[in-house]
Amino acid sequence: MMPAEGTSAAASDPPSQPAPVVPRFPPGTRVQVRDDWPERRGPCHIRTPHYLRGRTGTVQRLLGCFANPEVLAFGRPAPRHELYHVLFEQNPIWNEGHPGDEVLVEIFEHWLEPAEATKEAV
């Protein structure tokens, strides 16, 4: 069974609103995706791919603010959250692949933490 395409806000809702002047993670910030697995705790809807949990990447830019799909999926009023485009090296994720190849992914701010230097070195 295919999941429905996307979980964007209702058609009447504007898709985005002006981004805040100073994002928490400006372009170039090293960030770590939270190593969290809500799917183990019960029913949920998550737009953060499993292969990126705990991974470190670099913020490319803030894309805007969008209704939180994790709340929207259950038909509840969904507050808007900052959505970033985050760039990851492809090779360390899979321990295979071509050096220099990358993956660019939309990730909500509440899934991101500042990367710690020690974790980056691992």
Binding site: L63, G100, D101, L104, E106
Partner: peptide
Amino acid sequence: MEIRVVDSTADY
């Protein structure tokens, strides 16, 4: 040439 895979995970 390097590849950048774009995983369309959310609202764009």
